[in-house]
Design a protein around this nucleic acid. Structure first.
Lengths: 153, 153
DNA sequence: TATTGTTATACTCTATAACTATA
DNA sequence: TATAGTTATAGAGTATAACAATA
């Protein structure tokens, strides 16, 4: 007979979990993107870069290009556009005057907060349509989702 | 005292659920996209359109443009490229010769299956790293996620 | 005259290659 | 000579406007 206290009950996930989780995640992400970004007048790459600058603080252009998986010349243009819109500022390093660091302005902070708020409002409205049981299930699955997504903490 | 059998326990979701679910979903979706698409040599819009044609069967160009949220001229170009690669065929409607319907070829079917397999393999590998409890939580949350994402069924 | 789809053209975004300035 | 960033230029991808074919 099999042991009653299962020590390692199947290392691979249930067969249906993988494709269903994949499809649901991709579709939900698309909905979230559609329901907040358009109103800013900023492209996806501008928004993404702005978020990275906000998260990582003063950061060099080269490092920023790495983080956004973009070539340095592209990042130059992106930062230039963000600067023209008053959302970031370039600062030349005092010791090594080749490197330029980028940081966000207060206006960027306000924009980011507003954007986040709108996405959250949309998602919250959708969550409010679910049953209590469904919301509890999502809360219980949150650590697993964050683990999968590589969210720090 | 509060009633013990809560009849409507808060219509709005827990305060932390919304932002955490939003962040985790967006990041996981990005990981999934990065880990299968590049190898095909097809752009994101080509892949997305191909998937839609496969899902919706023979479909007119106009309808396809609607579904993909793209203007008709752009869809003309996308379909032309897919046709050049032997992944779809155009068929003129016999009764109304203005409309052209698009359907996938067997080669597209094979490509789509291979792609889906690769994405699933990546996600399955990540899921295998989770604890049993985390996977169970994800399975339990699946209906809620599909509901949120508007997955039919 | 209205509708389906196409062609013409311009704009945005990204990349590679060549360049400037610092070190 | 090497490195950080920029400018020059070209290739995708999309949009709007004008057009062709059909109803």
């Amino acid at each position: 007979m099999a042991p009653t206290a299962a020590p390692e009950p199947a290392p691979e996930p249930a067969p249906e979990l993988t494709p269903r989780l994949r499809l649901a995640t991709l579709r939900l992400a698309r909905l979230l993107r559609q329901h907040a970004d358009p109103e800013t007048g900023l492209s996806q790459s501008l928004l993404s870069t702005l978020g990275t600058v906000a998260r990582c603080g003063p950061v060099t252009l080269g490092r920023l290009a790495e983080l956004e998986r973009v070539q340095p010349p592209s990042m130059t243009r992106i930062v230039t556009q963000l600067e023209e819109r008053g959302l970031v500022v370039r600062e030349v390093d005092a010791l090594d005057r080749r490197v330029a660091r980028v940081r966000t302005t207060p206006a960027a902070g306000r924009l980011i907060v507003g954007l986040r708020t709108r996405k959250n409002e949309y998602l919250a409205a959708r969550l409010a349509e679910l049953t209590v049981g469904e919301r509890r299930a999502l809360e219980a699955a949150l650590p697993a989702l964050e683990h999968l997504a590589g969210v720090p903490g």
